[in-house]
Simulated assay, not measured.
Amino acid sequence: MADRATEDFLTHRNLLFTVAYELLGSAADAEDVLQETWLRWAGVDLDQVRDHRAYLVRITTRQALTRLRTLGRRKESYVGSWLPEPLLTAPDVADDVALAESVSMAMLLVLETLAPTERAVFVLREVFDVGYDEIAGTVEKSPATVRQIAHRARAHVAARRPRRTVSPAETRDALDAFRRAVETGDLRSLLAVLAADVVLVGDGGGIKQAIPRPVAGADKVARLVTGGWSRVAAVASMEPTEVNGCPALVVRFDGELDTVMAVRLDDDGRITGLYAVRNPEKLSHMSRETTLSRHATMPG
């Protein structure tokens, strides 16, 4: 029975991690949730479980909701702005457009504006296509209530997400233009790729220096970024990468990873959000690719 439980868990592990990560925005906390899920799953009488995937998703979601409420209290005392933990992802994540959008830094920040139960309902329904009855059992609400929550959450997210899905190629082009402009100190070219209302958010977690609060406006952001780069250009490099299923940039100082820069693009291809994660405690998942999935995968 233990072997059967292990095989089932490993088959769904990437799916469960993705559920937990989308609910928490933290890979470290998602890994902890998976440990807790395994401990509970190992004690289940599998002969009494009709749908193993649904049962595992239910355990994971409940554990993540408990942790999400704790995480909310931790964020209240967090030094500076809080950003989700970036993940180095394989290029094939971008092939699943719905998955790539749902784990993008921009979408995770939108999900942060939902209440915990709203976030769980939205993620389970919109990303993982879980039925209303199953979600109702997971969050311990009636199906009718869950439908109302889902409707509310969809409207909330729709009002804050980009109006259309931006292709990886468009994001890559914008990042290439951004990188060239910053490296050459070309303010005019940089302003051309930034939206007028662009917002720069930095997360140092009180460990690394970062802007203490978001900076808004193309001119302010452009001057801040080019000025900062000019002071470190002799030892710094900027390289393209794939983060959370989307093109992004990594900044290295003397070859060592220092910053992950993710972006949000508007409909016209201009950058409306720049998200710079410098907190070293959030960069541990940038050394190896993380597999994200909306489906079960047989263990190799």
Score class of each variant (00 low, 15 high):
A2C: 02
A2R: 13
A2Q: 12
A5R: 15
E7G: 01
D8P: 00
F9Q: 01
H12L: 05
N14M: 03
L15D: 06
F17M: 06
F17K: 02
A28P: 00
L34Q: 05
Q35H: 09
E36N: 05
E36H: 08
T37R: 06
G43R: 12
L46M: 10
D47R: 09
A54F: 03
A54V: 07
R58I: 00
I59M: 02
T60A: 14
A64P: 11
L65R: 12
R67S: 11
R67V: 10
L68R: 15
E76K: 12
Y78L: 07
Y78D: 09
G80Y: 03
G80R: 02
G80C: 07
G80A: 05
E85F: 03
P86Q: 08
L87E: 05
P91C: 08
A100I: 10
S102G: 07
S102D: 06
S102T: 05
S102N: 06
M107N: 13
V110A: 11
E112A: 14
R119G: 06
A120N: 02
L124F: 04
E126S: 15
D129M: 14
V130N: 04
Y132M: 14
E134W: 10
G137Y: 03
V139C: 04
E140P: 01
K141S: 08
V146W: 06
V146Y: 08
V146G: 02
R147K: 11
I149L: 15
R152C: 03
A155W: 02
V157P: 00
R163P: 04
T165A: 15
V166N: 13
S167M: 13
E170M: 03
T171P: 00
D173H: 12
D176N: 14
D176C: 03
R180H: 01
A181P: 01
E183P: 01
T184A: 15
T184N: 15
L187A: 08
S189F: 01
L190K: 10
V193N: 12
A196S: 15
A196G: 10
D197Q: 14
V198N: 11
V199L: 10
V201T: 15
G202L: 04
D203Y: 09
G205E: 06
K208H: 14
A210V: 09
A210W: 05
A210R: 08
R213W: 08
A218T: 02
A218H: 00
L224H: 11
A233V: 14
V235K: 13
P240N: 13
L249T: 04
R252V: 07
F253H: 11
D258N: 12
D258I: 04
T259F: 03
T259D: 08
V260S: 03
M261Y: 08
V263N: 06
D266R: 12
D268F: 07
L274K: 05
L274M: 12
A276I: 00
E281V: 13
S287Q: 09
L292K: 05
T297E: 15
M298I: 11
